[in-house]
């Protein structure tokens, strides 16, 4: 499987509904290689739905997502995407090494053992490879999960709340890993509501609320102030008579 090659992705007026629930409406943004884009917003803002759409797990109700200049689709596209989900996507009964080798195999990597060793090394768990994932702490699982998502060196990396359950040292390590990916030319998109940890990491911030883009900023600093300001502003606007926001 030759992974698709693209150097940017554009989300063009994308909406996704679940029955009558409008999870996302008219979202547009662009993400480039060598940059980290943050999807920020409170719970229920549509961040996870947006990631599922980008990961091809869901199809948009309307609008388009284009990877590069279009064309990429199906297995070739999936081979170029790595996803760290809300759940760890690991089998708790299997060891870290077995999990990594299994997924490396699914991505068509030839030398499973070498790929798994490399991933364990990067995760800082070289000594724990033969322990069952169920015996790991939340932070260790998250590290294995991240390396699982990156095992095929994807062009597009999607992360859903990657900082959850990490202590300061692990969060810092994750930050370093992400800047490493950026330097390696990946398109990194992460969804989070943890602004303190995202601070300083993002090249571009897209603020979501109730399924809409309320603000986008390049090279954002003072995220928290920006966020508080934005949410307050939108909050008062939403209090106005509005039949759709129920």
């Amino acid at each position: 499987m030759t992974p698709a090659d693209f150097d940017h992705l554009t989300v063009d007026d994308v909406s996704r509904h679940f029955g009558r629930r409008r999870a996302l409406s008219h979202i547009s943004f662009r993400a480039d290689r060598g940059a980290i884009l943050g999807l920020l917003g409170p719970n229920g803002a549509g961040k996870s739905t947006m990631l599922a759409l980008l990961a091809t797990l869901l199809r948009p109700t309307s609008g388009r997502i284009r990877y590069g200049d279009g064309g990429a689709a199906g297995a070739a596209l999936r081979a170029a995407i790595g996803v760290l989900g809300h759940d760890v996507f690991l089998y708790p009964e299997l060891t870290a090494r077995e999990n990594l080798e299994f997924f490396a195999g699914l991505y068509g990597i030839a030398d499973l053992g070498a790929a798994a060793s490399r991933a364990l090394e990067t995760a800082g768990l070289a000594g724990r490879g033969n322990d069952a994932v169920s015996s790991f702490s939340r932070g260790m699982r998250q590290r294995v999960a991240l390396e699982r998502a990156l095992i095929h060196q994807p062009r597009l990396v999607l992360l859903d709340e990657p900082f959850t359950g990490l202590d300061d040292a692990s969060a810092e390590a994750l930050g370093r890993r992400l800047t490493g990916l950026r330097a390696g030319g990946a398109i990194v998109i992460l969804a989070t509501h943890d602004l303190d940890l995202a601070q300083g990491l993002l090249d571009r911030a897209v603020f979501l609320r109730d399924g809409r883009v309320v603000h986008a900023a390049d090279r954002p600093d003072a995220l928290r102030a920006m966020y508080r300001d934005l949410m307050a502003r939108v909050g008062t606007a939403a209090d106005a008579p509005d039949l759709t926001s129920r």
Binding site: L57, R78, A79, V83, G85, Y107
Partner: peptide, 8 residues
């Protein structure tokens, strides 16, 4: 989900 995300 992880199985479905893979290019397999």
């Amino acid at each position: 989900r992880a199985l479905l995300l893979a290019p397999a």
